[in-house]
Design a protein around this nucleic acid. Structure first.
Length: 301
DNA sequence: AGCCAGGACACGA
DNA sequence: TCGTGTCATGGC
């Protein structure tokens, strides 16, 4: 547990400092969450219906024009700033020579605590899709179905909050398709029905055992192992999960097994055994590393 | 023009 | 239980 310093400043900003290893841009732009927009040095995002505008200046994280005093709490818990992240990075780096390269390449990359509902829908939209396109579809859904932001009054952005389960449950599948969701629209609607009706309680999954939570998620149309694992790691604090996508598959095969073909099941098995409770963190460093170093990876380092 | 993207699913062998 | 075609959409 880390003690943070929170300092209100004359210009209306609030400065947060005292956290250890944290890189704002890497964390916001790595593709784990889809609503962060980089505007110069400022990262603009919407969390819990609040507009957050953040800037990292050396050891300080500046929160621009907070709309309420508990914006700080949202920022701290979303980025897990009270957590000692360098301890996790140290442990991973010491684990093997792949991590010894992957971690320094993205030092300060955090696993953010997304809201489970937004995370679930975002990742249903991620199936066979690109980060860029996922972001575009999510933003369009917010434009059409989302509520205006509390407190902002349109001063800084015209963006809206993520649509509630009730609103999406009341929408038509063809309207979701209109946001360019494609074949994923059915899964979005079905998830909305199940959550809005109370049949699926996402918050309750946070305190459930991993396997139980995974089984509940996989019961949804359009949610298989990979997407379930993303929801588990990125929003339900199940850091032992290890989402295997095309990039992770390449990274594990080429960096650990000499390029030999492997099933996803075998990769997940390897991750559980090799990374244990830190698998989710390892996965995020590998994902970034593979995406930025993939030519070397494919050429055999 | 074709291949790929933070996959899942139904189908057939 | 394993592979394979299919599903929208857009960027490269």
């Amino acid at each position: 547990m880390i003690r943070l310093d929170v300092t209100p400043r004359g210009d209306g900003c609030i400065a947060i400092s005292g956290y250890d290893s944290f890189d704002l841009h890497d964390t916001c732009q790595c593709g784990q969450a889809f609503r962060w927009v980089r505007r110069g040095e400022v990262e603009e995002g919407i969390v819990a219906g609040r507009l957050l505008r953040l800037e990292q200046r050396g050891p300080e994280l500046i929160l621009h024009a907070p709309t309420g005093r508990d914006d700080v709490d949202v920022v701290v818990s979303y980025f897990r700033l009270s957590q000692s992240h360098s301890a996790i990075e140290d442990e991973l780096e010491a684990l093997d020579d792949v991590m010894a390269k992957a971690v320094p390449a993205s030092r300060g990359l955090r696993l953010v605590a997304q809201e489970p509902w937004e995370c679930l829908i975002s990742y249903i939209l991620s199936a066979n899709n690109s980060v860029q396109q996922i972001s575009r579809v999510v933003e369009k859904m917010c434009d059409i179905f989302g509520a205006p932001l509390a407190g902002d009054g349109g001063r800084y952005t015209a963006r809206r909050g993520f649509p509630s389960p009730a609103v999406l449950a009341a929408s038509e599948e063809c309207d979701i398709r209109g946001c360019k969701a494609g074949f994923r629209a059915r899964g979005v609607c079905e998830a909305a029905w199940r959550v809005a009706s109370g049949e699926l309680d996402l918050e309750a999954l946070r305190s459930a055992p991993v396997e139980e939570a995974r089984t509940s998620l996989i019961g949804l149309h359009g949610v298989g192992n990979k997407i379930a694992d993303c929801v588990l790691v990125f929003s339900l604090d199940k850091f032992e999960a290890f989402p295997v996508d095309v990039w992770i598959e390449r990274a594990v095969r080429h960096l650990y097994f000499g390029g030999a073909p492997m099933t996803h099941a075998r990769i997940r098995e390897f991750a559980a055994e090799h990374y244990g409770a830190l698998a989710g963190y390892a996965q995020e460093y590998l994902f970034n590393y593979a995406r930025t170093h993939i030519p070397e990876v494919l050429r055999g380092r």
